[in-house]
Simulated scan of single mutants.
Amino acid sequence: MDRKRMGQVAEEAAVHYLKHQGYQILERNYRSPLGEIDIIAEDRNTLVFIEVRSRQGTRFGLPQETVNWAKQQKVKRIATHYLKTKNAWKKACRFDVVGILFNEEGEVKSLELIRDAF
């Protein structure tokens, strides 16, 4: 499976899982001049900015480990842009990460949700 397709499948799996966890999906692939956030959702009364990461193996670590400090800062800047644009400053917010591993056949092997990841 090519990288782009793997990302699409991972995001679909994440959305499906998040809905089952009670999240209400508000936006997918939210784009701003600063970049993109994979999923924006509400979990109860909290606005959640979600980064989805996927890999086909753990040789180089888990997918969720790729959300390093620089990526966290970028997501925070994009989230700030979203809050300004939607005038949502008063909402409680958090940042979650979904890590997805695929097997050799391109099927989801495991999915981990890290709430309040950073």
Rank of each mutant, 00 (worst) to 15 (best):
L111P: 00
A79N: 02
K84P: 15
L101F: 02
V67F: 02
W69L: 15
K90T: 06
A70G: 14
K86R: 09
K84V: 12
A92K: 15
Q73F: 10
Y82D: 06
E65F: 02
E105M: 12
K90P: 00
G99V: 04
K86I: 12
T80M: 15
F60R: 12
F95G: 00
F102N: 01
G61F: 12
K91A: 13
Q73M: 13
V108E: 02
K86G: 08
I78H: 00
R77F: 12
A70L: 15
L111S: 01
N87R: 09
D96T: 11
Y82Q: 14
Q72R: 11
G99C: 11
N68F: 11
E107Y: 11
E105G: 12
I100V: 04
L83D: 05
E105D: 10
V75Q: 08
C93T: 11
I78K: 01
K84L: 13
K90G: 08
F102A: 04
K90N: 07
E65H: 04
Y82P: 01
S110W: 03
G99M: 09
K76D: 08
V108L: 07
G99K: 05
S110Q: 06
E107T: 07
K74E: 09
K91D: 10
F60H: 13
L101M: 01
H81F: 11
W69V: 15
